[in-house]
C-alpha cells in the first residue's frame, strides 16, 4: 500500500485541511480520528510526510503573520508528537545510530519554545537529543560527547541569546564541526542577532526549524 494511487492522494488532500483545523482548535478526538483514517491510505512514514509535516509547517508559519497563537502551536505539536509516538515506528536516519542533532535551552528557565520545536521535529520523524536547560559549559560538553553536528538553541532572554557566542567560541576551540540553529524572541526583534552570536542560521518559527534541520541533515557528507 502506498500513496501512489490517485484515490489515496485525493482522500488525503481532503483530510489535510480538516486535520489542520482540528489541530488549531485542539479538537483531539477529531484529529485522532482523521489521522487513523489517513493511516488506512498509506504507510505511516508517508502519512507523516503528507499530513503531519505540512500541517505543522503551515501552523508554524501562521504564527509569524499573527494568525495563530503560540499556545496553539504548542498544543498541536504535542498532539502530533503523541500520534506519531503511538505508531512505534523507527525515526528517520540510520538504524541503531544515535542522533547527531540536539536541542537545548541556554540558561533561561523558559522552556516552551524548545518544547514546541522538539515536539514538531519528533512529529516530523526527526530524532534528536533533548538537553533541556543547560549552561554553556554543560552544552559544549554534551555536544562533544554525543558527536552532535546540528545544534538547535532556544532562548527567550537577550542575555541568554548573547551567551550563544560563548558556545560557538568553546566549540570552535575544541575543533568541533557543527552548525548552530537559533530561535526565540530576541532573534525576532533583531534580524542580525543570529549572526552577531555566531550562529549559522535562525528559525523565525517552528516550521523554519523543521525545514532547516532537514536541509542540513541532507547536506551531511
Amino acid at each position: 500500500m502506498s500513496l501512489t494511487t490517485d484515490n489515496s492522494r485525493t482522500d488525503l488532500g481532503s483530510i489535510l485541511p480538516k486535520f489542520r483545523e482540528a489541530l488549531e482548535t485542539y479538537d483531539v478526538p477529531l484529529a485522532e480520528s482523521l489521522f487513523q483514517h489517513a493511516l488506512r491510505l498509506g504507510p505511516p512514514m508517508e502519512i507523516i510526510e503528507a499530513l503531519i509535516v505540512p500541517s505543522l509547517q503551515r501552523i508554524g508559519c501562521a504564527w509569524e503573520d499573527g494568525s495563530i497563537a503560540l499556545s496553539q502551536i504548542y498544543l498541536s505539536g504535542r498532539l502530533c508528537e503523541r500520534l506519531v509516538e503511538n505508531l512505534h515506528i523507527a525515526n528517520t536516519g540510520h538504524v541503531n545510530e544515535p542522533p547527531r542533532q540536539a536541542i537545548a535551552v541556554l540558561n533561561d528557565f523558559h522552556l516552551l519554545g524548545k518544547r514546541i520545536v522538539h515536539s514538531m521535529l519528533r512529529a516530523s520523524g526527526i530524532a534528536l537529543h533533548d538537553y533541556g536547560r543547560v549552561t554553556v559549559e554543560e552544552l559544549v560538553d554534551r555536544v562533544f560527547i554525543d558527536k552532535v553536528d546540528i545544534l538547535l538553541i532556544s532562548t527567550l532572554m537577550l542575555p541568554s541569546a548573547l551567551k550563544i557566542r560563548d558556545v560557538r567560541r568553546a566549540l570552535d576551540e575544541r575543533g568541533t564541526e557543527i552548525r548552530i540553529l537559533v530561535g526565540g524572541a530576541p532573534f525576532l526583534f533583531d534580524d542580525s542577532l543570529w549572526h552577531e552570536v555566531g550562529a549559522d542560521a535562525m528559525g523565525r518559527n517552528a516550521a523554519d526549524a523543521i525545514q532547516i534541520t532537514r536541509q542540513w541533515m541532507g547536506e551531511r557528507p
Partner: peptide, 13 residues
Amino acid sequence: TVFVENGPPNSGQ
C-alpha cells in the same frame, strides 16, 4: 530569583 550579570533576572524553578 536567578540573577544574571547583564540582564533581568530569571524566575527559577
